[in-house]
Design a protein around this nucleic acid. Sequence first.
DNA 1: AACAAACTAGCACGAGTGTGTTAGCTTGTT
DNA 2: AACAAGCTAACACACTCGTGCTAGTTTGTT
Lengths: 196, 196
Amino acid sequence: MPKRIDRDARKAQFAEAVWRIILDRGISAVSIRTVAEQASVAVGSLRHVFPTRAELLRFSAELMLQRARDRILSTEALEDPEQYALEIAKNLLPLHPDSRAELEINIALIAESPALPELVQLRDDAYQQLGQLCVRLVGILAEKLGEQDVREEARRLHALIDGVALHLLMRPLAEDADWAIRIIRGELHRIAHTSG
Amino acid sequence: MPKRIDRDARKAQFAEAVWRIILDRGISAVSIRTVAEQASVAVGSLRHVFPTRAELLRFSAELMLQRARDRILSTEALEDPEQYALEIAKNLLPLHPDSRAELEINIALIAESPALPELVQLRDDAYQQLGQLCVRLVGILAEKLGEQDVREEARRLHALIDGVALHLLMRPLAEDADWAIRIIRGELHRIAHTSG
DNA sequence: AACAAACTAGCACGAGTGTGTTAGCTTGTT
DNA sequence: AACAAGCTAACACACTCGTGCTAGTTTGTT
């Protein structure tokens, strides 16, 4: 039988090449050829795994969202709700090279979505899931809140997290990021101490 | 002497063609030829005004930021600080087709900035100016606050506005946007009633 | 040793890209 | 009527693009 290479690992390798190109040269520079070169592979090899450019980009986007999901889900449960929620939120912010790259790639793919309509669904799903996660967080922070209030607070938290994430991206990673943690921690504290 | 055409109006016309292409087909689809076609003009005519693609994109980005700035500055002063700040914030949110397009284009240009380094400076300047605007707003809302606290509240407001803006962009313009106003109004009210 | 599935590598094609260059057209002043 | 500044249009060049296609190579099973 054939040479048995882990297909998924191979696909991931190509997806990471796509990411590198996006980060280094922008979404417009992503082509079958540049990606193959980035992965140190002949064009034909890449095309054996991803016959078309659209499939390559779709998988790259999917894997990126999956990695983010995994990171969130692997956050260990903590006793203190505020502590736990803060850990989750920290995993949603671009505080490390990986999560930072994820956000940059996410933005690039959003920007390209008019040309790649299949990405819109992916983005919407991820957005919904993040929204539900915020609802859960608000739920454990302020148990007495009514459903309507929970939804409102969750929306607010979600927006604040995304806004802070965007601003972190504007500044170099090396820069002090305590202000971001302070803002989120303050918001979580406020939510935990609101009475309906 | 030559035919006297308003050069600036001509440039703006081309910039608007660039915007349309970005909105309809993504940043990757922006080329000298597609833009010329969108503007119903021969390639040579476009190139007479913008000799290179980089200059075309640079001007398109600049004009977009300028339009946003003008919209903010034209907000009429109101007596009530909270009302006034809310009016400003509403002009920062993608609540109308124009401002919505501005934000989409802004995101697309950010995504392409690795390939167009000159855009980074533009973006950073706009970000700084928005930050200072938020500082001013917080200043008039909570006059007694110390400088350090003003800065912290301003950062928070800025992040919240950008986060809400992003979320508005995720949903169709037709959809109910009252939640966005509610969140911002609530935040402005909170700032106005915090005591150092 | 023989086989075939899986993978690699490359060519070819038509289309699209940015840009250099050049020729023709418009139009207000002189 | 003559002029020239400014504008329009088109061609050419070398390059990149996505994709169809076809050989070659590797490797585990039989």
